[in-house]
Amino acid sequence: MTAYLLKRLLIGIATLAVASIVVFSMLEIVPGDPARLMLGMNATPDAVQALRDQMGLDQPVIVRYFEWIGGLLTLDFGKSYTYSVPVLDLVTERVVVSLPLALIALALSTLIAIPVGIFSAERRGRAADTISMGAAQIGVAVPNFWFALLLIYIFAVWLRLVPAGGFPGWSAGIWPALKALILPAIALALPQAAILARVTRSAMLEVLGEDYIRTARAKGMPRRTVLWRHALRNAMIPVLTILGLQFAFLLAGTIIIENVFYLPGLGRLIFQAITQRDLIVVESVVMLLVAMVVVVNLLVDLSYAIVDPRLRTNR
């Protein structure tokens, strides 16, 4: 168990190290001078140079890389070129939007998908199965931004139950803030729920075909117990894997959804930072996202060990 986790942990750290080099060098290669971009077409060359000096852009690449890494390790992310405020402040302001959004979406998709998947697997081939899997197929096919617009027109423009977009901030109260996150979370959750439902169904079907299930049934165990105690637990490994991957997809999906709902989240921040060549923000946020994904993968690995006792003892 410890060796297994240690190995996973080391892989995680190596991933982070490699990612940092990739992210940093990628942004070095991307052409374009952030100082010129900030000052625009009319600026004089010496004004541009003055800004380059201020931003420390003329230092050697290696020096800047290690300064950046050193900063990350001490939680000093540097200052945004465009906003000229500490990146850490920017990121914290945004995380409180994106993380709850991703978590609500994840919860929604799990709560919808797993019961639907089990329900379909149990009624394989029957009308209920065909209908729910057909719905899932549509869910996979519908682009989430389109679904988002549909939701906006129904619930914001027509019924006026929720705002069409924007985020009032948690300081405005829990309810107004949650209200602003409901539609985006649904829009994010739907395609994920559809995928997860299909995975759950096929994993369940596979397990339900196993001999031990037949044995359990043959010895007269109640259907419900067979389904929830024996089958579901064994079907969990592929479901957990997909769930872990989905967290990364949800974070990526926020870039689109946050634009449609103009939410001030991490996705918007990174999108904006890329177009404005705010390199230091892009680097830090990408690293943060990588770190989040690595942590989630570690948690998934850990949960494998919980559902599958073999992993606890053998390795």
Partner: peptide, 18 residues
């Protein structure tokens, strides 16, 4: 001043009165 970068989001923002 509310920041709405997406052209598709601008229309519902107006229609909803936000």
């Amino acid at each position: 001043f509310r920041i709405i970068p997406d052209a598709a989001a601008a229309i519902p923002a107006l229609l909803s009165g936000d």
